[in-house]
């Protein structure tokens, strides 16, 4: 398996789904080969040097919500991905920032720095939990990971299923090792893969801890700079038939392959400089 991609990279999530559709026609829609579908999805190259604005809304079971507006940019480098996120609003958290370096080597611990304006310095955060929550949302760091398909067993659960009118395969993925399952926190996942775009449109995951279910739905998919890119992601965590919490990410001004994104954007100094 590839190591998890940039821990705090919203871009990588988008990238994981935002795939070039060039090879879609190469795959027979009636194929029964789950691994071939997984390979075709994995083979897509996502965008790099990505910038975006994001509105993140977290709701609890009673509908109380927390809204954050974030600016982020990401850059792939040899051996991993760097991502920087600035909190734009509300005003009380403005300029709080996170920098993460996600290494492709799964044995290497990812780096993460947090800048808290009141301390006037950045602090390194140590975290080894892939199943931990990403920015307090329903997403985990494992969700931000583009998985290594060789670490998973795939099978087609349903040959044809419609999502928003699009024909999809329903693919089941299951970690080959118990260790990986424990790391990601998932027993298995079902992905609805668009046959025309070769991107997942929705995902259902079985969470081991608490035996919960998580539903993700990618919406408002548009082609940006040649990349199929979802502009909305809704995530819902459920237990015993009840909604526990819900996260909505809405992206604006997503751009890929921006030359303005350079290595100097991903330093502690830049982190402390703020917006």
């Amino acid at each position: 398996m590839k190591p998890r991609s940039a821990q705090l990279a919203i871009a990588s999530l988008v990238v994981a789904c935002g795939l070039h559709a060039v090879d879609a026609k190469a795959l027979n829609p009636n194929t029964k080969d789950a691994n071939a579908i997984a390979k075709a999805v994995d083979a897509q190259d996502g965008g790099d040097k990505t910038t975006s604005l994001m509105t993140m809304t977290l709701k609890d079971a009673s509908g109380r919500k927390r809204v954050r507006k974030l600016q982020q940019r990401s850059l792939k480098f040899h051996g991993g991905t760097k991502t920087i996120i600035f909190f734009e609003s509300p005003a009380d958290v403005r300029n709080t920032a996170l920098l993460s370096v996600d290494y492709d080597d799964g044995n290497k611990t990812d780096d993460q720095w947090l800048y808290l304006p009141s301390l006037h310095k950045s602090t390194r955060i140590s975290s080894s939990e892939k199943s931990g929550s990403f920015l307090g949302t329903d997403l985990t760091y494992a969700d931000m990971t583009k998985p290594d398909i060789s670490d998973y067993n795939y099978k087609i659960v349903k040959q044809s299923a419609k999502v928003g009118g699009e024909d999809c395969w329903v693919l089941e993925s299951r970690a080959k090792t118990k260790k990986l399952a424990e790391e990601t926190g998932y027993l298995k996942s079902h992905q609805w893969i668009s046959k025309s775009k070769l991107i997942p449109l929705q995902v259902k995951s079985w969470i081991t801890e608490g035996k919960k279910l998580k539903y993700m739905k990618f919406g408002d998919v548009k082609k940006v700079d040649g990349v199929w890119t979802p502009f909305k992601l809704s995530v819902r965590t459920m237990r015993a038939g009840k909604v526990e919490s819900m996260t909505t990410l809405v992206f604006n001004r997503i751009r890929h392959n921006q030359d303005s994104v350079t290595d100097s954007d991903f330093t502690e100094r830049r982190l402390e400089k703020g917006l």
């Binding site: 808290l116 009141s118 920015l135």
Partner: peptide, 10 residues
């Protein structure tokens, strides 16, 4: 606020 943000994330 900063510490709360830190804990919201961690």
């Amino acid at each position: 606020t900063d510490l709360m943000t830190l804990f919201e994330n961690s």
